[in-house]
């Protein structure tokens, strides 16, 4: 397969995986927690590197999932100790991220693991970073990681779709009928962590937030139905990845940055022109109401 098509495939996979997971974050008002996890994943990756002395994907996934869950637990603990939620998120993620940056500059300065890479990602190198898994031919590492995580996400969301849906919309009701709300919460946080780390190599720790939140937010402004929202969100994620890539290669700028920018532009368009909840359509229906 050609160089360009690998980048498009990896970008689209990241768009789908993030788009689907992000919908639940928006519905549960947990977006800032995703932002926090996307920062602290850096610490997980550094720790995994220091412990294992390798850049193997498996260690990175485990390290990120552990630190991601640690972030969620830490925020929950501070919140229960009486600190308002936004402040507890702010304290936890800035601290863990700061520790991650310090560890990188002290221990891992000369390896491939540099901070810029972690922040911005380098999707340009994805097609050359090949690995061999089992009987498969040599494939790009990012492609394998993203498709594995996508499968995990789809399986877990498929299995727990009803539980996720009811805990998102009505947690009290869910608790009343005996669904383990907290367990589902941590399950989702685990999914967010592994999604973040899989996308981390290609789009970077911070821009993954744009891919998590923006497609879901756009989809949320178009539909009221969860299943359609998930589908739309995945589609928007893919569209942003593809358009973003072509824009970046046309202007010769950072690919992941331009994918995030396109995500923002799509949101702005939907925000203005969405048929039901857009700013424009609301204005028009207001005017019609006045005329009557």
């Amino acid at each position: 397969m050609s160089y360009e098509s690998w980048i498009l495939i990896v970008g689209s996979l990241a768009g789908i995986t993030c788009g689907i997971t992000g919908c639940f974050l928006i519905l549960r008002k947990l977006s800032m927690l995703a932002d926090a996890i996307s920062h602290t994943v850096l610490l997980g990756i550094v720790l995994a590197f220091i412990v294992s002395q390798s850049m193997s994907g498996v260690y990175m996934l485990i390290g990120a999932a552990v630190v991601g869950l640690l972030t969620a637990v830490g925020v929950q603990m501070l919140h229960q100790a009486g600190i308002q939620e936004d402040a507890s998120i702010g304290v936890v993620f800035t601290f863990l991220f700061a520790v991650g940056v310090i560890l990188i500059t002290v221990f891992a300065d000369d390896v491939h693991l540099d901070v810029d890479h972690a922040l911005m990602g380098e999707i340009t190198f994805v097609p050359w970073d090949l690995v061999q898994w089992g009987f498969l031919p040599e494939l790009p590492k990012a492609f394998l990681m993203l498709s594995t995580v996508l499968v995990i996400n789809l399986v877990i969301i498929g299995l727990f779709y009803k539980e996720l849906k009811i805990t998102s919309f009505d947690p009290q009701m869910a608790a009343a009928i005996g669904i383990p709300v907290l367990l589902i919460h941590y399950l989702l946080m685990g999914l967010v962590s592994i999604t973040t780390v899989a996308s981390f190599d290609s789009v970077g720790a911070i821009l993954v937030v744009a891919m998590l939140i923006a497609p879901g937010a756009s989809a949320y402004l178009i539909t009221d139905k969860l299943s359609i929202m998930l589908l739309l969100s995945a589609l928007i994620g893919v569209a942003a990845a593809v358009i973003g890539y072509y824009l970046a290669s046309w202007l010769d700028v950072s690919i992941s940055g331009s994918m995030a920018t396109i995500n923002g532009i799509i949101f702005a368009l939907v925000f203005l022109f969405s048929p039901t909840k857009g700013l424009l359509s609301k204005k028009i229906s207001m005017k019609r109401l006045k005329m009557d």
Binding site: D35, A260, G264
Partner: peptide
């Protein structure tokens, strides 16, 4: 979250 990441992406 949306504003933060999109602005930062544009900054990159």
């Amino acid at each position: 979250c949306l504003v933060l990441s999109v602005f930062f992406g544009f900054g990159i």
